[in-house]
Structure formats: C-alpha cells, structure tokens
Measured scan of single mutants.
Amino acid sequence: PREAYIVTIEKGKPGQTVTWYQLRADHPKPDSLISEHPTAQEAMDAKKRYED
C-alpha cells in the first residue's frame, strides 16, 4: 500500500501569504510532490484516494 503525508506551506509575498497543502510521498523518490491543494479537506481527500 502507498503512503502519503501532508505538508503545509505558505505561498505569496510576506504579509500576504496564503496557506496551501501539499500531498507528498516517498515514491518514486523521497519527498516527491504528488499534488497541491488550497484546503486541508481537499488534501485529506487526495491522500485517501492516493493511499487506496
């Protein structure tokens, strides 16, 4: 089974940042970016789909 994890990042100019959620996995390479999402819920949904 595949495993993934969610990383929170800040995008934008200082003082005007927006939080994004990255879905990452250690396949095919360590810390590979799988997808980016504007909400934590979307990231969790993507994580479930990826791991299923």
Rank of each mutant, 00 (worst) to 15 (best):
E51C: 03
G12W: 05
D52C: 08
E36F: 02
H37K: 01
I6E: 00
P14I: 11
D45F: 09
L33H: 03
Q16V: 11
A4E: 01
P38V: 10
Y50K: 02
D26L: 11
K13L: 15
W20N: 03
K47E: 02
K13P: 13
P1C: 08
A43F: 00
K29E: 14
Y5I: 06
I9L: 07
P14R: 09
Q41I: 12
H27M: 10
R49K: 15
I6T: 02
G15W: 06
E42V: 03
W20P: 00
D26T: 10
E51H: 07
T19H: 05
Q41Y: 08
E51N: 12
K47I: 04
T8H: 08
T8Q: 11
A40D: 06
H37E: 01
Y50F: 11
W20F: 08
K13A: 14
D26P: 11
H37S: 01
V7K: 08
M44Q: 12
K47H: 05
L33E: 03
Q16L: 10
Y50W: 15
R2Q: 09
R49I: 13
Y5D: 01
D31P: 10
P28F: 07
D52E: 13
E42G: 08
S35L: 00
E3A: 15
I6R: 00
S32F: 14
E36V: 07
D31K: 09
A43P: 00
E10D: 11
A4I: 11
A4D: 00
A4W: 10
E10W: 07
E42H: 06
K48A: 12
Y50V: 04
K48M: 12
T39N: 11
Y21K: 00
P38K: 13
P38Q: 13
E10V: 13
V18M: 11
D31A: 12
D45T: 08
D45P: 00
T8A: 12
K48H: 11
H27G: 07
Q16P: 09
Q16H: 14
A46R: 03
Q16S: 13
D26M: 11
A4V: 12
Q16R: 09
A4P: 09
A25T: 15
R24H: 07
Y50A: 03
I34D: 00
P1G: 14
T19L: 13
P28I: 10
K47Y: 05
P14E: 13
G15L: 07
S35Q: 01
A25E: 04
H37T: 01
S35W: 01
Q41M: 11
D45Q: 13
S32I: 09
V7I: 12
L33G: 01
S32M: 12
G15S: 06
E42S: 09
M44K: 10
R24F: 12
D45I: 14
R24T: 04
D31F: 15
E51K: 07
S32V: 10
A43M: 01
E51Q: 10
L33F: 12
V7N: 04
Y50P: 00
G15Y: 06
G12Y: 05
A4L: 14
D26I: 08
T17E: 09
L23Y: 01
V18W: 07
K11P: 02
D52L: 15
Q22L: 04
Y5G: 01
M44T: 09
A40T: 07
E36H: 02
E42A: 09
V18S: 11
T19Q: 06
E10N: 10
E36T: 07
E51T: 08
E36Y: 03
M44F: 13
L23T: 02
T17I: 09
G15A: 05
T8W: 06
D26H: 13
E51D: 12
P30I: 11
A40M: 15
H27I: 13
A25G: 07
Y50G: 02
A46Q: 04
D45Y: 10
T19A: 06
T17A: 10
A43G: 02
A46G: 03
L33V: 13
R24V: 08
W20S: 06
Y5L: 03
S35K: 01
A40V: 15
W20M: 08
T17V: 10
P30S: 07
R24Y: 15
Q16T: 11
S35H: 01
P38N: 08
Y50T: 03
H27L: 11
G15T: 06
K29W: 15
D45R: 10
P1V: 14
P14Q: 10
P38M: 13
D45S: 09
A46K: 02
P1K: 15
H37F: 08
Q41P: 06
G12K: 06
P38C: 06
P30R: 11
T19V: 12
H37I: 00
Y21L: 01
E10Y: 11
A4T: 08
I34C: 03
Q22P: 01
K48D: 08
W20Y: 08
E3K: 15
P14T: 07
R24W: 14
T39M: 03
K48L: 12
Y21I: 01
T39K: 03
P30T: 09
I6N: 00
I34K: 04
T8G: 05
Q41A: 15
R49N: 11
G15P: 15
S32Y: 14
D45E: 15
K47S: 02
K11F: 07
M44D: 09
I34M: 04
G15N: 08
M44N: 10
P1S: 12
P14L: 08
K13S: 15
A43T: 02
I34L: 09
K11R: 13
E3N: 14
D31T: 05
E36Q: 05
A46P: 00
K11D: 04
T19E: 06
A4F: 13
Q22S: 04
V7H: 05
A40C: 10
K13D: 13
A43Y: 00
Y5T: 05
L23Q: 01
S32C: 05
T8P: 14
K29P: 12
S32H: 14
I9P: 01
V7L: 07
A46E: 05
S35V: 01
K48R: 13
P30Y: 09
A4N: 02
G15H: 07
K47V: 03
S32E: 07
R24M: 12
T39W: 03
A25I: 14
I9C: 06
P38W: 07
Y21P: 01
D26R: 12
H37M: 02
A46L: 02
E3S: 15
P28Q: 09
K47T: 01
K13G: 13
W20I: 11
A25N: 06
K29M: 14
A46C: 03
M44Y: 14
P14Y: 12
Q16G: 10
A4M: 08
A43N: 00
S35M: 01
P1R: 14
D52M: 15
E42T: 05
S35N: 02
L23R: 00
E42D: 12
H27V: 14
I9V: 14
Q41D: 10
T39V: 03
P1E: 11
Y21F: 11
Q41W: 12
Y21Q: 00
L33R: 03
E36P: 00
H37D: 01
V7D: 02
I9M: 07
G15D: 08
T8N: 06
K11C: 05
A46H: 05
H37G: 00
D45V: 09
Q41H: 11
M44L: 14
V7W: 05
A46D: 02
D52G: 14
D26E: 07
W20V: 10
V7P: 00
Q16I: 07
D52T: 15
L33W: 04
D45H: 09
M44E: 14
T19N: 06
D31G: 15
R49E: 11
L33C: 05
H27S: 12
